[in-house]
Design a protein around this nucleic acid. Sequence first.
DNA 1: AATGAATGAGGTTTCATTCAT
DNA 2: TATGAATGAAACCTCATTCAT
Lengths: 199, 199, 199, 199
Amino acid sequence: MMTNSDKRADIIQAALELIADRGFHGAPMSAIADKAHVAAGTIYRYFENKDVLINELFLELENNVIGVLLHDYPSGKPVHDQFFHVFGELCRYLISHPLHFRYMEQYFNSPYGISKRRDKLVGKKIDPDGHDTLIGIFQEGISQQILKDLPLIVLSSLAIGPMLYLIRDHTLGFVALDDSLILQITEACWDGIRSSANI
Amino acid sequence: MMTNSDKRADIIQAALELIADRGFHGAPMSAIADKAHVAAGTIYRYFENKDVLINELFLELENNVIGVLLHDYPSGKPVHDQFFHVFGELCRYLISHPLHFRYMEQYFNSPYGISKRRDKLVGKKIDPDGHDTLIGIFQEGISQQILKDLPLIVLSSLAIGPMLYLIRDHTLGFVALDDSLILQITEACWDGIRSSANI
Amino acid sequence: MMTNSDKRADIIQAALELIADRGFHGAPMSAIADKAHVAAGTIYRYFENKDVLINELFLELENNVIGVLLHDYPSGKPVHDQFFHVFGELCRYLISHPLHFRYMEQYFNSPYGISKRRDKLVGKKIDPDGHDTLIGIFQEGISQQILKDLPLIVLSSLAIGPMLYLIRDHTLGFVALDDSLILQITEACWDGIRSSANI
Amino acid sequence: MMTNSDKRADIIQAALELIADRGFHGAPMSAIADKAHVAAGTIYRYFENKDVLINELFLELENNVIGVLLHDYPSGKPVHDQFFHVFGELCRYLISHPLHFRYMEQYFNSPYGISKRRDKLVGKKIDPDGHDTLIGIFQEGISQQILKDLPLIVLSSLAIGPMLYLIRDHTLGFVALDDSLILQITEACWDGIRSSANI
DNA sequence: AATGAATGAGGTTTCATTCAT
DNA sequence: TATGAATGAAACCTCATTCAT
């Protein structure tokens, strides 16, 4: 039914806004219910408990991100182009969705997120649709000797770490990331991961 | 007196371990007291309230880090050497003090840390002893045209972001950072920030 | 709904009994909850905190008193009759509601009550319905030269002070105030405030 | 020894000031110790516990008052003179010792004071030196048919009640009791208690 | 005799969750 | 299905009292 899924979406949205803004323990279930225009008990018809709500919210956001990265993905193009596509899209998405970004940051820095991270990295092949786009790019880049021959997780941090910190600074107002600056940062990260041999 | 400082240190240590492990709200005062072998009320002889405890603990860790970075600092040496010194020392310190690292991560991702971050970045010259070593290195590097001419906060993220993510992965067991790998990462970060002109 | 107002009333009543009996700090919220047959947390659905509970309880009692004084008030009758009406009604009310009396005594002798008292006396015209009956009587009496020309607050104390002390003694069992004695006391107080000139 | 009694006096004075100012539960033992420039534990060398301290402090104040009332007491003079002496002295004493007044008010409105009051009034002849001056005056006045033939406790309230309320108002700044006003109040109270027959 | 650090029971308040309606 | 009042465990913090020094 429509109403049904509407309420679920309202709850998810309310939780997102509150947690992004005030952290997990600044977002009591009662406040989420209020903001969702729903009774406290209603939340429990859609989510078994608060942990489940938090985790399902994360999964939705994660799917959003994956969708964005795959949209217009330049399959078959050079590794360089693929990297610039993924980096740019991700950056623009997070900048234009600061609540999503703040939420995921909170999530990864909490008991919830730790296990998530472990699942993802240890399992490596969590999603059967091959969504781990960056990993794929790096593997290809290494085998083509375009990228430094470092563990994938290291390349991943070199490529993504700076961006995530800068987006935080952007949302906090310490720096203004415009297209020109984003491009410079992308290039700097590319400089960091590409093989020094072929310079 | 001995007893005095012992108890304070015990409390600090207990708080560090619990919060690093379970986050701020997985560390109730009663649990900290238990772990410190101290009565609940005793904590309040040393710290006005939980917030103060959390902030003082952070300040202690911050001082540790500053001390480490300044130890054997290669003043007068080239920017390149200074960067490698700071990066390496910081990395080794955080790897060998995983609780300190986890704690600071939690701290920066919380209401406490946000303001701290703002103070640090806006104020820029917080500590009169010139402890803001990285910023100094970057300024010098830019003026010598050795480093990319980017906002200091961007250089800072390019240089430090990857390391911080990798140390988290290291403490979680997803990668093993040995001296050789650390050196490679340092070089990769240096590649990221140095001016492309003089390659 | 019934349940709603019932619970609130139960809490108010429990607080009244405990505080009247044992003072503010002999009445922890847990004890109030127990006596009201309610969970501790339930109190906070009806009152934001203990202070609010204490103040709202006072306001309810105050309204009771005002209602009693205005009931059958002999408007248009001589000042003497009005005084005897108010004095008698107040006295009978307080004697038959010893908990209300004890509560208000505690209240006026506490940080809560001090400010209340100041509001009342400085503001003077707190309630727009002209409930400040005694003050009105005194003003009329002075202008008719029936009463001593003293500050209103002095007349007020002369008229009410003895009664309040005696009601305390009555509730403690040191004296038995029957109708005859109440009348004699009323007359004595009247003797105290009326102008000596027209004797 | 001097030092000994000095400390006891310091503690008594500190307790007086704090409790008069902030009430019993705004005066923790630690605060009393601080204000008395004494260690917390020291208080317990002079007073078994907080209750004992509170009660002994009251007894000291009570003795002060008795001393004042007996000083220059017009024995053998008419009841009228004796009443004016006692009323005036008491009034002046309380006005010039607002802390004593506030303390005794708090005391009488608390579990401590209730029992005290009972002792006093039931026992009636508590102190063997005949200090119950007012009662004596009233007995004499009744037998001489100068005063109304009312229970002693009623006369007592008629005579003292207004004054106590007015002193409170004075200490709160709602009225300024000067010698002239005190005299008028004394006369009004006298009007209240004296026999109407011989007017 | 004096100290004051330490204790821990007990106070107020919050909030995830349940359940009668 | 939805509600939201009610619950009570658990959080933070205070403070009278003790006791080793």
